[in-house]
Design a protein around this nucleic acid. Structure first.
Lengths: 148, 148
DNA sequence: CTGGTGAGTTGGTTTCTCCAACTCACTCTG
DNA sequence: CAGAGTGAGTTGGAGAAACCAACTCACCAG
């Protein structure tokens, strides 16, 4: 049966973080914003949508709401392990945006502990060589069964 | 002036590839699909949306339409340089999905030319060390002026 | 001449987004 | 103590986008 859409972790990932504003909200948490109004201001999303997105990110285990004040209850959003692991995705996306979308110099610059400006590169974890498309071959790809 | 949403290449990138189905369409091209109906089938997107997304990806220089048959005119979609560069983003996103979203074994597996199953890792291009969050410091981050 | 494929368009319904305004529980200032 | 300010949402209505099925048009194959 090779019916139906491809079953792929990219699609699965998009179900969880693919909606508009989800990634930008996460970016803000990476950048150090932890409170609702900060995230609203820095992303430009509307408050209701952001409420929904943050709620979903909490439900799917990417963010955690941590109480930092009772009376009135005030929460901050912090990354879970799954959230922290998104770092590499964000970094590569930013590098791509810098190179092919943003005009002019990169608006956001990070420094790595080695002292240089951070430029991410994706390597094969085994041989440590940069991953190039022509060096990749598809071994297996499943499909999702159609509901029949 | 520190007003308005943060100016960031992640946001800029999302304007171009952030809509639903855009990334999945691109995934299909990476996976070897080149024709409209293949992409429709493999993603599960509706045809009209996919028409719009592919058109946008062509306009923004990520895909190219290449005529492979006249009478009737038939086009295939191929990646431009900017499109090829998205490889690393897709790869990292897939790895994250494999680890934190997809239940069970990875649905899609690639082999690297070194002989091993491909596991992407993000390193600093200068020192070649894996990038960890605690080794990064924000140097500069601009903001977009509000329209005032 | 009927059926099939490739690449879309069209129309109508459902769903999502955006925005401004509103709430509620406080805290801070004069 | 009254009034303004802040943090974290919620609500309602308009407008945009997505979804789906059906339709078109051009060809080819039996």
């Amino acid at each position: 049966m090779t019916e139906g859409p491809r079953d792929c972790s990219i699609a699965n990932a998009m179900e969880v973080i693919g909606e508009r504003w989800s990634l930008l909200a996460l970016r803000e948490v990476f950048f150090g914003a932890r409170r609702f109004d900060q995230i609203v201001r820095n992303t430009g999303a509307s408050r209701d949508i952001l409420t929904a997105r943050l709620r979903k990110l909490v439900e799917t285990g990417i963010l955690e709401k941590r109480l930092y004040e009772e009376h009135p209850p005030r929460y901050e959003y912090v990354l879970t392990e799954a959230g922290h692991a998104l770092n590499h995705v964000l970094l590569n996306l930013m590098a791509w945006g810098d190179a092919y979308v943003t005009e002019g110099p990169p608006p956001t610059v990070w420094r790595h502990s080695c002292g240089e400006v951070l430029a991410p590169e994706t390597v094969c974890a085994h041989c440590r060589e940069p991953v190039r498309e022509k060096d990749m071959t598809l071994v297996r790809s499943s499909r999702r069964a159609t509901s029949s």
